[in-house]
Simulated assay, not measured.
Amino acid sequence: MIDQQYNVAETLAAILSAGKGAHTIGDTPFVVVPENYRLEELGHLLPQPTRKTGLTSLHDADSFIAYVNDHKATESRIYADADFESGRIKFVAVLNEHSPGAEADINYAAWRDHRAAFIPRQTPEWKAWLGKNRTKFSQQEFGEFLEYHLPEIVAPDGTRYPQPAKLLEFALNLEETKKVKFRSGQRLQNGAVQLEYVEEGDDATKGKLEAFESFAIGIAPFFNGSAYQIEAKLRYRITNEGGLTFWYELQRPEKALEDAARDLLEQVQNKTSVPVLFGEA
């Protein structure tokens, strides 16, 4: 048995002596080791590794780009496994990739074991709005949802969408009128819907609540990524008991997800200058 206290040179000498010399098959070296010998990995005894290895997982595009730029070489390649329709994309950089070489008869093989990976993470805001898309809310639940997510509601200049302050007023009105009985809705010329309500046991109209036809949100699908505007159609239903049920329908959220994935691909291509191949590494 080889003593683990041997240094590297002594250990290699002992192996070669026991195996009666090193041999090659083609270009691959090997040594014959007698039975009952155990080969020990001694790389950990070196002051530093002989080459870079390992997989590093990054959480956003900027970190992935920075790591690739710090370690890239001429032969490095980035593989993008993408399904743009679903917005799914994964980047894997193989930093010590095979090189085609200048001459066909020269072997330019590499170990391909120094890698960096980046799978975009969806933001909490994206998950929240997509998770509740087309979900039925009670009157109070919808008011609370709008109030909590008010920072994501937008109304760019020149658009017909209500300002966030108007949505907040609407949300608060929903909570204030939760104990009344709604009986009818009328669409106004501006596209909004006016809902009439009465007090319990009184048929005389006591008030009106104006609901918007649609509103807009601005959210980033991916962590540290760009935000995209998405229209939300507001839907409602008066229940048999005179209560209100609300929900919203996001208009083509998959398009925003596709655009976000394509934007990430463009960033990686432009900021690393490393060739990007579509497929799995």
Rank of each mutant, 00 (worst) to 15 (best):
L130F: 02
T50V: 15
R252K: 10
G207F: 09
Q186E: 14
A61C: 15
V154K: 10
H23T: 13
N224E: 12
L172N: 12
F91Y: 07
L46W: 09
L174P: 00
N190D: 15
N69Q: 12
I106L: 12
L257P: 00
D263G: 10
Y79N: 11
P162L: 10
V198D: 14
R252Q: 11
A117P: 04
L55G: 00
K127N: 13
A261Q: 11
E169C: 01
K127D: 03
L16M: 09
Q163V: 14
N133R: 03
R134L: 04
I25M: 10
R160Y: 04
R112P: 05
V198A: 12
Q194I: 04
T28W: 03
Q5L: 10
Y161R: 06
G201F: 15
P34T: 08
K132M: 07
A220I: 04
S214D: 04
S273T: 13
N107T: 12
F170C: 00
G19M: 05
T24A: 12
K132E: 09
R121P: 00
R112L: 09
L55T: 13
P29Y: 10
M1L: 11
P29T: 11
L277K: 13
I119Q: 09
F64L: 09
K179E: 14
G87M: 08
K166W: 08
G43P: 04
E125G: 02
Q48C: 12
E258W: 00
G191V: 06
N69T: 13
S63L: 05
D259T: 10
H59R: 08
A102E: 14
E280A: 11
L188K: 11
